[in-house]
């Protein structure tokens, strides 16, 4: 009669290892990440209770009905029970699904009053580049044929376009705290993925598409950007950082960069 004990012990250990939160999310750096954490906690609690009750019940049934020479009870089923647990699980699961829809809507579908700052993100095997429109607020024209990483032109900015003269290209993503930033995600070779743990969001960069993606970070600091879609042999080293600074520091940085161009 080892099995019930093993199942119970496993269930306790699994539940406990989730409860101690030793390996967990990094601290949230905006309101979205905080709501993500609370929705996840509710989900985890529901799933955790179901997990624990189901495993405990499984172990208990095995223990209680182990063969001691008793006659098994003949029972073909119960329509009432089927209807009961079908409706409960349907409500619970669809309810959980609906409950998090708002969070998704907010990130991907809601309209914004503040159009925000626009930054282009270009991914390639296995590096990130970011482009700022500079003081004029306009991105210069690009041409794929002019792309030259060695010469510091990963976007292929056209030399004689005045709008591009002041464009800033950076290998790290620097944003002002507390402002909406519209990222324009592009890839020149294979599919990559933009993932910042502290923001709790990720988005693929698909060649041939420019995918607008909104972020907002409130807490200044440096956060790692990790590629999260298999992109080739250097996938594990495709790293950059999101640098969140105060608006003031951001403006200073922008001015200094533009002056250098």
């Amino acid at each position: 009669m080892l099995l019930p004990l093993v199942i119970w012990a496993t269930a306790v250990l699994v539940a406990a290892s989730f409860a101690i939160k030793r390996w967990w999310f990094p601290a949230p750096i905006n309101a979205h990440a905080a709501s993500f954490d609370s929705i996840f906690s509710v989900n985890l609690l529901i799933m955790g209770v179901i997990f624990f009750v189901a495993q405990a019940l499984l172990g208990w049934l095995i223990w209680k009905h182990r063969d001691r020479g008793q006659q098994a009870r003949h029972s073909e089923g119960s329509t009432r029970l089927e209807i009961l647990w079908t409706s409960i699980t349907l409500l619970l699961f669809v309810g959980a699904g609906l409950a998090s829809t708002g969070l998704w809507y907010e990130v991907h579908l809601s309209a914004l009053a503040d159009a925000g700052l626009k930054i282009e993100v270009a991914a390639k095997q296995f590096a990130w580049s970011f482009r700022y429109p500079g003081p004029d607020g306009k991105f210069g024209k690009t041409d794929i044929k002019l792309v030259n990483d060695a010469a510091g032109n990963p976007f292929g900015i056209v030399e004689n376009d005045p709008a591009g003269k002041d464009d800033i290209v950076s290998s790290a993503l620097r944003v002002p705290a507390g402002r909406h930033v519209q990222l324009l995600l592009q890839s020149r070779d294979v599919i990559h993925n933009f993932f910042v743990r502290e923001l709790r969001i990720k988005q693929d960069l698909v060649p041939g598409m420019t995918i607008p993606f909104r972020i907002r970070a409130d807490k200044p600091g440096e956060y790692e950007i990790a590629c999260s879609e298999l992109c080739g042999l250097g996938h594990h080293q495709m790293r950059s950082v999101l640098v969140v600074v105060s608006q003031q520091d951001y403006d200073t940085w922008l001015r200094r960069q533009a002056a250098q161009r």
Binding site: F36, S100, N193, K202, L230
Partner: peptide, 10 residues
């Protein structure tokens, strides 16, 4: 749930 999968995907 897409909102949660946005973190857990891959």
């Amino acid at each position: 749930q897409p909102a949660l999968d946005s973190y857990f995907h891959d």
